[in-house]
C-alpha cells in the first residue's frame, strides 16, 4: 500500500495555502498588533497607575494567562453571538497574548537603568515625554526578540480558532481528509507549512537577540 502520494500532497497544497494566508496569517498579524499595543499599555498602567487600578488589571491579566485560550474563545463566541468568528478570534488571540507581552515589556522597562530616569528628570522632561523619548525606545530594544517569540507562538495557536467554526489551515487539512479518507498528506503538509513559516523567523530572532544584547 502506498502511504505517501506526492500527487495528493501537491493537490491539497493550494487550498492549504489559501487558508494559511486568509486565516492564519491575517489572524497572526492583526492579533500580534493588538497584543503588542495592549501589552505595552498594560505594562505602563501597572507601573504608573494607582494601586486600585493597577491591582485589578494585574489580576485580570493573571487570570487570562492561566486559563486556556480554547475556553476563552468558546466563552466569547457564545457571549457575543452577533459578531463573526474571525473577528472574535483575532481579538481573543490579541488579548490573550497581550497578557504575555505585558510581562515582556515589564521586564524590558525594569532593565532600563535608573540613571536614565534621573537624567530625564534632571532635564525637567515631563513624565509623558520621559516615557516616549527615553524609556520606551530603550525598553523596546531589549524586548523585541522576546515579543517575536510570542508572535511565533501565536501563529501556532491560530488552529484553535477552529473551535469557533473558523476554517483555518488545519481544519482545511482535516476537511480534505474527511473528503478523501486519506489524512496523511494534508495534515503533514499543514505541519510543514507551519514549520516553513516559523523556523526562519525563530532563527532570525535568535540572531537579533545576539546583536541587540547590550547589557
Amino acid at each position: 500500500m502506498d502511504w505517501w502520494s506526492w500527487d495528493r500532497a501537491i493537490e491539497v497544497l493550494p487550498e492549504l495555502l489559501v487558508a494559511f494566508v486568509k486565516v492564519t496569517l491575517v489572524a497572526t498579524v492583526i492579533g500580534s498588533a493588538i497584543a503588542a499595543v495592549l501589552g505595552l499599555i498594560i505594562a505602563i498602567v501597572r507601573r504608573t497607575a494607582p494601586a486600585f487600578i493597577a491591582a485589578p488589571v494585574h489580576a485580570i491579566m493573571e487570570f487570562i494567562r492561566m486559563t486556556p485560550i480554547v475556553i476563552q474563545l468558546l466563552f466569547v463566541f457564545y457571549t457575543f453571538t452577533s459578531v463573526d468568528g474571525m473577528t472574535l478570534g483575532v481579538i481573543v488571540l490579541g488579548v490573550h497574548y497581550a497578557s504575555y507581552m505585558a510581562e515582556v515589556y515589564r521586564s524590558g522597562i525594569d532593565a532600563v537603568p535608573k540613571g536614565q530616569w534621573e537624567a530625564a528628570k534632571a532635564l525637567s522632561m515631563s513624565p509623558a515625554r520621559t516615557w516616549r523619548k527615553v524609556v520606551i525606545p530603550q525598553a523596546l530594544r531589549t524586548t523585541l526578540p522576546a515579543l517575536g517569540t510570542w508572535v511565533i507562538s501565536m501563529l501556532k495557536d491560530t488552529p484553535y480558532l477552529t473551535v469557533i467554526f473558523v476554517v483555518d489551515m488545519v481544519r482545511q487539512a482535516e476537511n480534505y481528509g474527511s473528503r478523501t479518507f486519506v489524512y496523511t498528506e494534508s495534515i503533514t503538509m499543514a505541519g510543514l507549512i507551519f514549520l516553513a513559516a516559523s523556523y526562519p523567523i525563530s532563527v532570525l530572532l535568535r540572531r537579533m537577540e545576539k546583536r541587540l544584547a547590550t547589557y
Binding site: T184, I187, A190, G191, L192, L195, Y199
Partner: peptide, 21 residues
C-alpha cells in the same frame, strides 16, 4: 525544531487521524 515548529493541533491530528492509517 520539528516538534516546536509544527503546531500542537497538527501533531494531535497526526496521531489521531494518520496513525490509524
Amino acid at each position: 525544531e520539528f516538534f516546536r515548529g509544527t503546531s500542537l493541533l497538527v501533531q494531535l491530528f497526526w496521531f489521531f487521524y494518520v496513525m490509524p492509517l
